[in-house]
Design a protein around this nucleic acid. Sequence first.
DNA 1: TTTGCTGCAAATTCTTTGCACTGGG
DNA 2: CCCAGTGCAAAGAATTTGCAGCAAA
Lengths: 127, 127
Amino acid sequence: MIKYSKQRQAIKNQLLNRGDHPTAETLYSELKPSMPNLSIATVYRNLKQLEGMGEITIIITDGATRYDYNVKPHAHFFCNKCGAVLDIDTDREQIVKIGQENFSGSIEGYEVNFYGTCPDCMTKSRA
Amino acid sequence: MIKYSKQRQAIKNQLLNRGDHPTAETLYSELKPSMPNLSIATVYRNLKQLEGMGEITIIITDGATRYDYNVKPHAHFFCNKCGAVLDIDTDREQIVKIGQENFSGSIEGYEVNFYGTCPDCMTKSRA
DNA sequence: TTTGCTGCAAATTCTTTGCACTGGG
DNA sequence: CCCAGTGCAAAGAATTTGCAGCAAA
């Protein structure tokens, strides 16, 4: 049985409020001030548990793993200039269809990552 | 200037001959018998260098990083049953278009991973 | 000869685990 | 009460780095 814990609640809130894709370390250091004896292990344990319950999604990146509250199927965009990680809405049907075209197995899930220059950096470099 | 090294050559060959997506550890243990004082550090260094030169592609996975000789744009398929990593040909244009539909930045590259049951496992479970 | 490459081992980084303790149900 | 959840520190796994010797160019 899953019990309530204020640590888990705080982690969920933080992820939800940020709306972006922080690492476990980031969440930890943001929560630490208000919960001085929070442990990084607790953060990892809860993130893993939340993922198991389907409440969050993990994003495997070079270096550290990132976590995402978003439930809707979408893709991620990694800016090569500033390192930002953004969401891009994509149509599940279309993606799966493309994969299925040249593959006879069964596709149950997918993950799409785009790389390039984010709108912000494009604006900056134009200035 | 990049110098020839038999270690690097061996790593490239192994990657090319296998045709699949081994981890650095796998390559290392396969080459070790014929090169007894090969070091895992050398394997990592060369894989990173080859990636920088564009000769190979890295695939970031849960756990360990995998390496791929394939240059053509394609997607990867991860079998949830047997853990196999396979290639799926995909059309670059189509994928980038889908991303671009809801995003104003510039998409320069992408990576697509599919998850599901591979043809082999489908056959087995049917038996 | 010069400078990249190698092997080795130690160091890092990210994440997980063991354990005694606390607190929700 | 009982067991999931916690904090801490130690353990792990994957990868990187420092350095002295070796070997391409």
